[in-house]
Structure formats: C-alpha cells, structure tokens
Design a protein around this nucleic acid. Structure first.
Lengths: 110, 110
DNA sequence: CCATGTTATGTCAATCTTGACATATAGCCG
DNA sequence: CGGCTATATGTCAAGATTGACATAACATGG
C-alpha cells in the first residue's frame, strides 16, 4: 500500500535471494509476500504431483508457459488473483487454499 | 479462466442477488466467487469492529471511500489482491485470512 | 422539511496485469 | 558434441484494475 514502499518493492521486484522481511517490510507487507510465495510453491507442488509440464498447465489455464513459470517463481508481476485461480483450476478447494496460505501444506491424499 | 465464462461473468458482473452457483458456475469458479464474498464480508466485519467509516479505512489504504465500498460489496471490478492487502493492512494475519477463506470466521478476540 | 454523516454507484485516465511470443538456460540421452 | 524437452526471462500491445471524483441513496437527528 503505502505508495512509497510499493515503489521500492516494484523497483527491486523483491527478487532478493530466497526472500524475507529484513528488507524493511512492514508486518503486513511481509505477510503479503510470504503468502505469494506459499501460493507459488503450492502451485508448483500440485502441478508436479500431477506430472504436468508448465505447458500442460498453461493449456488448462488458457495461459502460456512463460506465465506459469512466472507464477511459480513468485514473480511480483503476477497477481494473487491469477495464482489463486490457477490453484482452484488445479482442483484445490477453499479449505486447501487456506491450508496453503496458513500452514506447512502437503498434498491432501490423492 | 475459460475465456468464455470469464466474459459471461464480466458481462453480468455476477451481481445477482445474494449470489450463488446455480448460474452455471464450474466448481472452481464457484469457489472463487465464494472466496471473494468471504473476504469482502471479512473486511466489512473488521472495519466495523474497529468502528471505522469506509473513509477512515480508505485513508489507511491510501485508497478512496468508493473503492472500499466496492470491495465490501464484492464488486467484480475489485481484485483479490486489493481485498487481501486491505485485510492485511487491517492487521489480519495469514492464519486469520485462511480462516476467513475456509471457515465461518469470527473476529479472533480483540 | 433540512442538515449531516455514511455508504453506493458510475466514470475515467493512469497504471498494472495479461497472454503471446522470442529467446535463453538447464538437464538428459545418445 | 548435437538434439530434445522443460523451465526461465524479457518484451509488448491489449485488456483489467486503480484512486479520484461526482453524485446519488440512505439513515438519523433536529
């Protein structure tokens, strides 16, 4: 939010190694970033679990391989919207999403 | 996703009374819509709990009263990103977000 | 009835996100 | 080494979202 920080984040794209707070993120900014990373990881985990390639998934999503790659890498140029809709499209339920967001996760038993 | 349905949703804006599946939504579309509504409700609940007006909240978010109104009404022209960042800005934790998404909710004890 | 405070709805230019595409990198098999 | 498949990275026009603003609708208290 706070436009200032927004800009700083955009500038750096918060690529930064394996990414963490210590960049001067406020608590809510940190939660936001962490959430994205969790969703990104959840997406990759689910895709691999189904033994799909990024290209396969892209087809399902009516998107492109490059965008899937960006999603999974937590690229800041991808919205939470897209991440979440992708997970839903992979069959994740709201409850599973909640688990991904809050907890350690795990694929719920095939 | 499925561009077709996307367009249909946009067209109608899925305003539709108190909103539900029976519009021909696929399971993941339904989950998506329901999730938005939950977040919207969670936002309003939290704002009222703090006895803030939409204008007060808008200030905190560096946004405007009208956008807050749209968020809380589940307006399709508002992104999940904004809803979620707003909740985080109101102090909700990832775990609380997860609760809002998956469960019946409740303000966690002031 | 008129104020006043709050929320709803519509519009629009600036900004951000998207899918598509090109291209690069990495791993693997012969 | 060259092919092959999967993934990563960069760019961009088309489209979606944003904050701001105007204005309407709705209460509540005189």
């Amino acid at each position: 939010m706070r436009e200032e920080k927004q800009k700083r984040l955009k500038a750096k794209g918060w690529k930064v190694g394996n990414t963490r707070e210590f960049l001067g993120l406020s608590p809510d900014e940190e939660a936001y970033v962490e959430m994205r990373l969790r969703l990104a990881g959840g997406l990759r985990k689910r895709r691999l679990h189904r033994r799909m390639t990024q290209t396969d998934l892209a087809k399902i999503l009516d998107s492109s391989q490059s965008r899937v790659a960006k999603m999974e890498s937590g690229d800041p140029a991808v919205s939470l919207d897209l991440l979440i809709r992708s997970l839903l499209a992979l069959g994740a339920s709201r409850k599973e999403l909640a688990r991904i967001i809050s907890g350690p996760d795990s694929i719920p038993a095939s």
